[in-house]
């Protein structure tokens, strides 16, 4: 699996992401600096978390309009698999690769804690190794994770089975009480229409090691490795 991880000034989760991908696939991904304009030849492109360009203007707005994102968009349009986590999710919404936007958390606080997400759809390439309804314990760390889209868009996402993860409790119950940041319909992750671009706020890359945070994030990377190596 030939994977690229985009790196902007302010990105800070790229090494965790590289470790996760290497653990699942056996191959170390390539770090690609934001000035690069060509991303051809990769099977997977990951836009990791952090604070790209200091979150100036809006989270992800600067990165979303940078040259490397035009290259990401080009590859996504060709069917290359693209994963955006946390700030990466914000960036993918700003580019228009994914609908909606991530607003400031409803409680106005930066949230850094372990939480649970429920897999709503088991499908390659992102969640083939998860079963529908499976609950994973993963970390979130964000100030703007409050997923917002208008009702029409939300109904479309639900109707097309594009809501992939929702915030839930340890038993998989989805309710207002488990909606830690105020996201519409508890949405934690969605895919594009074609199914090759996933954005999610939680950090599966920080749950790959039994010594640090558990391993419940690993199946996502194993899914990617299986889908792309197959």
């Amino acid at each position: 699996m030939k994977a690229a991880i985009t790196v902007f000034p302010g990105t800070n989760r790229e090494r965790d992401m590289a470790d996760a991908l290497e653990r699942a696939s056996g191959t170390r991904p390539t770090m690609v600096w934001h000035g690069e304009r060509d991303l051809s030849g990769y099977d997977l492109i990951v836009v990791p978390g952090g604070f790209s360009y200091g979150d100036y203007l809006r989270c992800g707005a600067m990165a979303g309009n940078s040259p490397i994102l035009r290259a990401v968009k080009e590859q996504a349009d060709r069917g290359v698999t693209v994963l955006g986590v946390c700030n990466g999710f914000q960036i993918l919404t700003e580019t228009g690769l994914l609908p909606g936007v991530l607003l400031r958390n409803a409680g106005l606080k930066f949230i850094c804690k372990m939480t649970h997400i429920r897999c709503e759809k088991s499908a390659a390439p992102f969640t083939g190794k998860l079963t529908q309804g499976q609950v994973s314990r993963v970390a979130v760390a964000h100030n703007e994770g409050n997923y917002y889209a208008d009702d029409e868009t939300l109904d479309m996402l639900e109707g097309e089975g594009r809501v992939v993860f929702r915030y839930c409790d340890d038993r998989g119950n989805v309710s207002d009480a488990t909606n830690l940041n105020g996201s519409q319909r508890n949405i934690a992750g969605i895919v594009n229409k074609r199914g090759n671009v996933l954005g999610m706020m939680p950090h599966p890359e920080n749950a790959i090691d039994p010594m640090a945070g558990g391993t419940e994030g690993l199946p996502i990377f194993q899914s990617l490795a299986t889908a792309i190596l197959a």
Binding site: L57, A61, N65, P99, V101, Y148, A149, D150
Partner: peptide, 9 residues
């Protein structure tokens, strides 16, 4: 439309 505002919100 391109940068200063996110017209979704």
């Amino acid at each position: 439309r391109k940068l200063l505002a996110n017209t979704v919100i």
